[in-house]
Simulated scan of single mutants.
Amino acid sequence: MKQIILVRHGKSSWNYQVSDKDRPLKERGINDGILVSNAFANKNITIDFAYASPANRALATSMIFLRNLNFDLDLFRVNESLYDFSGKSVSDFVKRLDDGLETVMIFGHNYAFTTLANTWGDQYIENVPTSGLVHIKFDVENWHAISKGTSETIIFPKHLKR
């Protein structure tokens, strides 16, 4: 069984004259990341490895989540392939993962994550929002064989706010 946890980066700021990769999180992005990661922590899912896009907003989101999950950062890497908006590069990356890894968490971008959540999961999602998390299980032994799985957990910030 393989499991992928897709996390879209938190809400970013456009208030700075920086490149797309360097855009920081807004305060809302930080707060939503804390909210969603705390809710996910209650699921008690063991993550074997985590990867993030090199974009500042994805890296910052990954640190919020991984710290809240008490995740061993030795099992974390940044990968350029995850700075992808179509989903093709992320899909190729996932299908090349080491088959010794069962559960992997990835931090990245839309529209890639909405596309992949709908391609791989069994619940239609119109849009994975910022700080949104989608956990999908696949009944396969090899990452290259993933296709349609089961959407196990979907946590969006709006689900946690009253």
Rank of each mutant, 00 (worst) to 15 (best):
Q3G: 09
Q3S: 12
L6E: 01
L6R: 00
S12H: 05
S12Y: 00
W14K: 10
Q17G: 10
S19A: 09
D20C: 12
D22Y: 14
P24L: 11
P24F: 06
L25R: 00
K26F: 15
E27A: 05
R28D: 11
G29A: 03
D32A: 05
G33T: 04
I34S: 11
I34T: 15
L35R: 04
S37V: 00
F40G: 00
A41G: 07
N42P: 00
I47D: 00
D48P: 12
D48N: 08
F49H: 13
S53M: 02
P54R: 10
P54W: 05
A55E: 02
R57A: 15
R57T: 07
A58N: 04
A58P: 03
A58V: 03
A60Y: 02
T61F: 05
F65A: 08
F65K: 00
F65T: 02
L66R: 04
L69T: 06
L73W: 01
F76I: 02
F76N: 12
V78A: 15
N79K: 05
E80D: 11
L82Y: 07
S86H: 14
V90Q: 00
S91F: 15
D92Q: 09
D92C: 12
F93G: 07
F93I: 15
V94P: 01
K95N: 15
R96M: 09
L97V: 06
L97G: 06
D99E: 12
G100C: 08
L101Q: 11
L101H: 14
T103P: 13
T103W: 03
V104S: 13
M105K: 01
M105C: 09
I106Y: 00
I106D: 00
Y111D: 01
T114M: 07
T115N: 01
A117N: 10
A117K: 11
T119C: 03
W120Q: 06
D122N: 14
I125A: 05
I125M: 03
P129M: 06
P129I: 10
T130K: 03
S131N: 11
G132L: 01
L133E: 04
V134H: 01
H135G: 03
K137Q: 06
F138H: 02
D139C: 10
D139M: 11
N142T: 06
N142S: 13
W143M: 10
W143N: 04
H144R: 14
H144V: 13
K148M: 09
G149I: 00
S151V: 01
E152Q: 12
I154V: 13
I154R: 15
I155P: 02
I155G: 02
F156H: 07
K158N: 11
K161D: 08
